[in-house]
Each structure stands twice: as structure tokens, then as C-alpha cells.
Design a protein around this nucleic acid. Structure first.
Lengths: 329, 329
DNA sequence: CGACGGGATTGAATCGTTTCAGTCGTTGTC
DNA sequence: GACAACGACTGAAACGATTCAATCCCGTCG
């Protein structure tokens, strides 16, 4: 059905090699010939079959990106950074969504390997090193995004989440808050764990301050709303919430707003994480810990390219930045 | 480097045909043999080369989805609907971002054709029928998403945007608003045009009511913020804004909030469009026109499958739903 | 005038999988 | 005991592009 180089060659009265040259090394072919070939291509509506090309060349021109949740603006911003840098390099990006589930993550990695992607950027759910080690052995390097490589010898771009968590709580302490509730999960997610660790570290030296944990099963607005409702029902309410990310924070804000009795920030301060665009537009603009989202994406691709160039893997750790808004009054 | 079926076959002491059967039609092969082959696969870390498979089979197992803006939650929700339905069908989804630019849209379509996707779902920037007609001639069907196919003979899933625009304005009129400003763009985007048309239709019979237009260059929050600032500077301010989508609405809300003088909704009512999750979480919860986002995605894939089954293209038009919140008082 | 050089072109080999007609060996039937 | 039937397995052909050694052609130079 679809035209092939052979058809084009025949119609233009040249060999397949010449058609291929027109496609891949114009300049190697005489202008007159090139023109004739181009005409044949247009006539037949020829479009090169990438599968055949890839098979012959032995590699694709795409890279895989696995994120925890495409519906989280944080990740679409990261993806944007990746894509921009990738496009400049002539690479296309395959975007996959693990939904914070290890099985989906593994399935996507498998698919990516079948596609023979050049490399993989991943915001991992949990321990995927064995899988990634296998990929590396077979020539596919990877880079951790939004997560420090726990083992040396692996590339990563991350933000110091422990510090981010600490900054959030220290800010709250400075505002006089003492009964802090960390709302986030799943708790085996490294990002969440680190932020919580930082939060706990911040209260360590402060006698009357404490951090409790309200675990949720996912970093979504819906989970935040549910958490907000639970907070309303608590006997002794916290005076501040540190959320695992901005979606949770927005959700909590909505959840507690259902009860007119609780005011933000007077009765309950809220600090989010990521500083997505929507944080500033919230009912009460959310204080948040900003991560350089697009930059992380671009840097991750950079590290991947380095590895493809044979350079050593390395880790980049960026610093988060506290952005104070009304929610922490 | 990477192991091939031939390597596996050799190691397992069988022919390549048998290896292929283990992969694709287990059941055709004796349990003992299958086990031996599987062991060889595991030993060698064999992963099937999808390019070769595709080349031989003649088609891929993926479909392409082109959206106007991946950072708009509306589209990630649609994408989610598509993906879920696609996964159930064993198809994977290639997600591409046109950023409301016709050249990027065309480039992505070209790439998709090179990949020999089974079909394409697209939320088009402008007139792409010629391109899509070419694709169809070469065996790749497509479905319009979030946009009514203007020509019969094409599949589409859309929402009645004219009605949505009218509902928005009628609601505002009922609340006593008269000087309505439509903020949206680019104006050649069908969705925007239709919503504006509906808005104008609503005031047609009302003497003292009018709809002005403040055009923006893209449906983003940043554009909305800029528009909000412009509104502050207007000599005669509108008493209501109908936004092209929720991102614009959120932006306008932020933009006008910079000036303590304007209160929403007292001085300025705002109605958005799409009803993304963030609309409800906004500074002033945004009244919006809800579209069934995930459902649109799932239905679009459904229509694509129908075409792949040889059925006739058809159009599905869904009805929008006004969701009243605080921003329209 | 013949040899040389070099740009343009050719076409067979190749990538790794699936497919399918055919072989092999065993079991069951009459 | 011959033959059919059947399941398991084989292996060569095919998919469509790229690559590269070989060939062709033509102008130039000695």
C-alpha cells in the first residue's frame, strides 16, 4: 500500500541508493537528479518507514521519559524542559506515565527497550536499579530525574528535598507554628521520604514543636481533599500543614474550606512543594518550595547526552527555594 | 551487542521459528521446549527488537495523539482517557504537543506517519484536512478531538462550544451583568471562535448588553495574567469576563487581584471553560463550563477503532454543563 | 590521444523479526 | 503392519531502509 524507496526509485528512474542519498545526504546527489527524485516522492506520497530505517541503523532517535504522574503540572513542566533540549538535538521524547505504580513503570521500561530508545530519563517509583542496570548492560543509559542516585555511578538531577522539607518547617516555626502535620505519600517514594525527613530535622531542636504524619496514597488533589476532611475531624488540630507537593496542598486547602470554621492561614498554615503555576492562583495563594522544573528536565537530557558520549555519570543537586505567599501568613 | 532471536535459538538448541512462537504463540510449542527457550531468553537478556517486528508485520501497535498544549490539564485529562482505553486494546499512545503552532503540528504528523501509527487523534490548530486526507489515503485514519469535523466523512468527538459560550453569557446576564468581555485566542482556533460566537449569540436579543473581545495569543495562565492587567487599565471596565478556558480565567483572576480595588465577583464576575480540577481550587472558585474530558478521550479512541474496523466515520457531539461557583457571584 | 581523477550512481548485502510451507516423528486406526 | 493424522519444529523468504564497494562517465592534463 504505502510507497517504498523502491517505488520512488523506479518512478524517478534511479536506484534505491540514490533515493536514500536524497533523503539522508543531499549534496551527494546532483541537483537535477535530486529534483526528479523529490518529484517522485511527492507524486507517490512517499514517507520513509522508520521501522526499516531503525532496523538498519541499529538505533532509534528517541529517548524515553517515565514520570510519576502526567497530570501533575510539575512533571509536564519537567517534560517540557526535556523536550525542548531534545528537539534541539534531533531526538524525540516518548512520554510514559507510571502513576506511581512499580508494575506500570517496569512495563514502560520494557516497551522502551523494545523500541531501542537511546536512553531513559526516569522519576522512579521505587528501587529500579536492577532493571536499569540490565538496560545499561545492553547499551541503554539512564538518568534519574527529581531523585538523587543513591548509588554512585549513576546520573541524576535532583533537588535537595531534605533541605526543602527543612526550609518549609523552619519557615513555619519562625511564624510561630508548632503542631505541624506532614501530609504526603506514598511514604516509600524517595521524594516524600526526604521531605519528611527534612521536616523532622527542623523540629529536632525545638522542644515544643512536633511533626505528625498523615499518610496518603498518592500525590493528587483528590487525596489532598480527603486529607483536608480528615483534618477537620481531628480532635487536636495541627496549626500547620506541610504537604508532599502542591497538589496535596491545594487539596487540603479545598478540604478544610468545606468547614467555614477553619481559616487559612489564621487557624491553619499550609506550605506546598514544587511551586507549580497553580499554587499562586489558589484560593489562598500557597507558600511553596520552588524547584527549577524545566531546568531539571533540560539538565537531565544533558546528562544523558554526556553518557552517550562516553562520559562518566554524575549527579547534579539543585537547591530549592522557599516562596512565601499568603497561606503561611 | 543486543541478543537476537538467532542467539536465543542457538543457545536453546532450537530454530528461530520456534523462538518466535514462544514469544507470539505459546501453546504452539511444547512446554519443555518453551521452558528451555525462556531460560535462554533470560540468560541472554533478550528483548525483542520492535523495529524488526514492525517492519515484518507492516504496522505498529501505537496511535498518535496531538494536543494543543500538554501543560493544560484539560488535555492531560483527555490523554488519560485515551490511554486507558488504548491500553485495554493493547495499543500504546504517542503524545505530541503542537503548542498551538501549525508547523509543529505538521511535523508531528509527519513523524507519526514515519512510525506507521495505526491512527491519529488530533486537536487541530487550524485547517489540517489536506494533511489528514493524505494520511487517510495511505491507510492512516484520524479522529478530531475537542473539535467538530467541519466536513462530513470525518470522525470527531466534540462539545457544543457555541452552546457552552452561550450558557456562560446567559448565566452572567441572569446575574445582571451587561458589559461582558471575552478574553481568548488565538481567534482562529475553532474552539475559541465557537465559544465567542455563542457568547455573542446570547447578547443578541438583549438591548443593553454587549460582548467585547480582548484577544490573547494563547490559552495560558500567563496570557490571562497579562489580560487581567490590561483590564485594570481600561477606561470603562467590564463587569464580567468570559474566558476562553480555565487557564485564562485563573490568569485574569490573578491579574486583576494585583490591584486591591477590584473584587471578584462583586466588581468583576469571571466564567471559565473546561472545568479543570484547579478551577475549583482557585482564589475565588471559578464558575466554569464543564467538558467530559476523559470521556472525550475514550470516545475518540473508540471512533478510531471503528474506522480501523472499516466502519463509517461519525461525529459525536457532547453537551457542556455550567458549573456555578463563587466567581460569578 | 590515452590515462587519470573524481563526482555521481548503482545494487547487493544487511539489520532482526515473523510467517508459512514443509519435514520429522509419534500415535492411533483399521 | 501400513497409513493417515497430527503436533512439534525447521528454515528460508520477506518486510524497507541504509551502506559501501564497485562501476560509470566525463572533463582535464600531460
Amino acid at each position: 500500500m504505502a510507497a517504498s524507496v523502491r517505488d520512488v526509485a523506479e518512478r524517478a528512474g534511479v536506484s534505491v541508493g540514490t533515493v536514500s542519498n536524497v533523503l539522508n545526504s543531499p549534496g551527494k546527489v546532483a541537483p537535477a537528479t535530486a529534483e526528479r527524485v523529490q518529484a517522485a516522492i511527492d507524486d507517490l506520497g512517499f514517507v520513509r518507514n522508520d521501522a526499516a530505517r531503525q532496523l538498519r541503523v541499529g538505533r532509534s532517535h528517541s529517548i524515553g521519559l517515565v514520570v510519576l504522574d502526567v497530570r501533575n503540572p510539575f512533571f509536564t513542566d519537567v517534560a517540557r524542559g526535556v523536550e525542548e533540549r531534545a528537539a534541539a538535538e534531533g531526538l524525540s521524547v516518548l512520554l510514559a506515565n507510571s502513576d506511581e505504580r512499580a508494575d506500570r513503570e517496569a512495563a514502560h521500561l520494557e516497551l522502551f527497550e523494545e523500541q531501542r530508545v537511546r536512553g531513559i530519563l526516569i522519576s522512579p517509583v521505587e528501587e529500579v536499579l536492577p532493571l536499569l542496570q540490565g538496560l545499561r548492560n545492553r547499551g541503554i543509559p539512564s538518568v534519574f530525574v527529581d531523585r538523587l542516585a543513591s548509588t554512585p555511578g549513576w546520573s541524576s538531577v535532583s533537588v535537595d528535598d531534605v533541605r526543602g522539607g527543612r526550609d518549609a518547617v523552619e519557615h513555619l516555626l519562625a511564624r510561630g507554628r508548632r503542631r505541624i502535620l506532614f501530609v504526603g505519600g506514598p511514604l516509600d517514594l524517595p521524594q516524600v521520604r526526604d521531605r519528611l525527613e527534612g521536616a523532622r530535622a527542623a523540629v529536632a531542636g525545638v522542644d515544643d514543636a512536633r511533626v505528625d504524619v498523615l499518610p496518603v496514597t498518592g500525590l493528587t488533589m483528590a487525596q489532598g481533599v480527603a486529607a483536608g476532611r480528615q483534618i477537620l475531624a481531628l480532635e487536636s488540630r495541627p496549626d500547620a500543614v506541610v504537604a508532599g507537593n502542591d497538589l496535596i496542598a491545594l487539596g487540603v486547602l479545598q478540604g478544610v474550606a468545606l468547614n467555614g470554621g477553619i481559616r487559612v492561614p489564621e487557624d491553619l498554615a499550609i506550605v506546598g512543594y514544587d511551586d507549580i503555576d497553580f499554587a499562586a492562583a489558589a484560593a489562598v495563594p500557597i507558600t511553596s518550595i520552588r524547584q527549577p522544573r524545566e531546568r531539571m528536565g533540560a539538565l537531565a537530557l544533558e546528562l544523558l547526552l554526556e553518557q552517550l558520549d562516553g562520559k562518566e555519570p554524575r549527579q547534579i543537586v539543585l537547591q530549592p527555594e522557599l516562596v512565601v505567599r499568603a497561606s503561611s501568613g
